[in-house]
Design a binder for these strands. Structure first.
Length: 445
RNA sequence: GCGCCGGUCGUAUAGUGGCAAUUACACGAGACUGUAAAUCUUGCGGCUUCGGCCUUCGGGGGUUCGAGUCCCUCCCGGCGCA
């Protein structure tokens, strides 16, 4: 994986760039479409592509449970299995430490409304005996499968092994996503754990790289490279510069790029420390290829937290703001130097009948749309808008027809992916602020 | 004509003396941010100062402190016998 910055936002952290992966390039900033179980729910890869998506993200935990990472490997890896030709990523399972752990059955998620102050009580609310499917152990996390109740212990090493088997282009270190309602002491404790796990993730990643290079199948024809294995540090470093060419412009061997994850809750000290530690972390000269910014946020905190982190992270590597995706958040993140976003909202909202428009979100099942013969947006270029009316979509949803969720998801993916593309273009054209104001004025009026 | 069964919120249902009345669907509104999610919450007789108040279980009458529930009668529907 390579990353190149093309243009910066004057006086700000934002930038537009290009990531190169074995499955093609990603023009950044970019929105990554989520396909947790190796499928973007309700839409096929061609529809995802046609909606403008460049890259998708699947989940380690879910694919490990079903069908199993070995099965995915046998099917030729994530991309081949799901017939997705473009760049791909996998999340590490770190979010499930939170969603199936501290957040389990509590109705809390990535972004917490500060309007509920009880969410932000200063002392840690000890509910460790509350029912949860994920429990943090000595050196990993034990998960009780939501599918069949079986228990699985996931360590950083295990997460990386699974992700190597899944074979995405970009993978993430195993981390602990914390809730903003945790107190400083817990955030600090969790952060140390995340850092220790990051180190182990990096170690395991490096180890698997070396093993893979040493293996028979990779040996063939590449003895020159392998002679370096086990030799000097500089030698190791040189062959580990992945995606080397054999002189004919072909990639010899591609490894996933590993992203380290910054945590630290809403604490400035912890966020900055984390960005520092993660960006400097190395194993035998190997560092993280990019960075994830994780954690559950209070909406009001998100912008400052992202800025704290991106001021510290090295600018020559890509940054991914994990799980974030409302339009306002995208402008905020891009302005603050984020290159990649992923979020389930376009597809989840779509399936549940909420549709993005430039004038805000609409509930397609509301009475007012039952006889509305207009497309969702007259000037939208997506398949849904070019071919169907709101009345028909409303009918599909009322009738519980699967196509409703599909068409709404296609539009929502198109809407969000292309919003980010337009923001990127505004950076290149030098009119980011104008575009931002113009869009947000109409969107939130 | 006689006998039996039945008529409850849009629909289908629960309810056999304390009931503004069960459940499901439909309908209305809302939520959803590294997917336990094609899911969940909530409203669904009217008014309300949220304590209540009023009007409701085919129509009418009655028994009772109290009736969707018991009695009488009428209307409507189904089945059976003539």
């Amino acid at each position: 994986m390579k990353f190149k910055i093309e243009k910066r936002l004057e006086g700000k952290l934002g930038r537009a760039g290009i990531i190169e992966t074995p499955h093609g390039i990603i023009e950044t900033p970019a929105f990554v479409v989520v396909g947790t179980k190796g499928t973007v729910k309700s839409v096929n890869p061609e529809q995802v592509r046609d909606a403008g998506a460049q890259v998708i993200l699947a989940n380690t935990y879910h694919l490990y449970l079903q069908p199993g990472d070995e099965a995915v490997k046998k099917m030729g890896g994530l991309n081949k299995m799901m017939n997705w030709p473009g760049p791909s990523m996998t999340d590490s399972g770190g979010f499930q430490v939170f969603s199936l752990g501290a957040a389990y059955k509590k109705g809390i998620s990535k972004v917490i409304q500060i309007t509920n102050p009880s969410m932000l009580i200063p002392e840690r609310f000890d509910d460790s005996d509350a029912p949860r499917l994920a429990k943090i152990g000595q050196d990993g996390v034990s998960f009780t499968s939501h599918l069949d109740g079986s228990v699985h212990y996931i360590t950083p090493e295990k997460s990386i092994q699974i992700q190597h088997n899944l074979g995405a282009d970009m993978i993430f270190a195993f981390d602990e996503c914390t809730s903003p309602s945790e107190d400083f002491k817990y955030q600090e404790e969790a952060l140390e754990r995340t850092h220790a796990w990051a180190k182990r993730s990096l170690q395991e990643h490096y180890k698997l790289k070396v093993e893979s290079l040493k293996s028979e199948e990779n040996y063939k024809g590449h003895s020159d490279i392998l002679q370096n294995v086990g030799m000097s540090e500089s030698g190791k470093r040189s062959f580990l510069e992945e995606e080397r060419s054999d002189g004919k412009g072909e990639t010899l061997r591609s490894f996933p790029a590993l992203f380290g994850i910054v945590q630290g809750g809403r604490e400035e000290v912890l966020r900055k420390k984390s960005a520092q530690v993660i960006s400097e972390m190395e194993v035998d000269g190997q560092k993280f290829d990019g960075f994830g910014i994780g954690g559950s946020f209070a909406k009001e905190d998100m912008s400052t937290a992202v800025k704290w982190v991106n001021e510290v992270l090295p600018e020559e590597k890509p940054r991914h703001l994990l799980g974030i995706g409302e339009p306002e958040d995208l402008f905020m993140g891009i302005e603050a130097g984020v290159d990649l976003f992923d979020c389930v909202l376009p597809t989840r909202l779509g399936r549940n009948g909420t549709i993005y428009t430039k004038a805000g979100k609409i509930h397609i099942m509301n009475t007012e749309f039952r006889l509305d013969l207009e497309p969702i947006e007259r000037d939208c270029e997506c398949y849904t808008c070019k071919n169907y009316t709101k009345a028909y979509l409303a009918h599909l949803f009322h009738g519980k027809e699967m196509l409703g969720g599909t068409l709404a998801s296609i539009h929502n993916i198109h809407f969000i992916v292309n919003l980010v593309k337009k923001i990127r273009q505004s950076i290149l054209d030098g009119n980011f602020d104008e575009y931002k104001n113009e869009f947000l004025n109409e969107y939130s009026k």
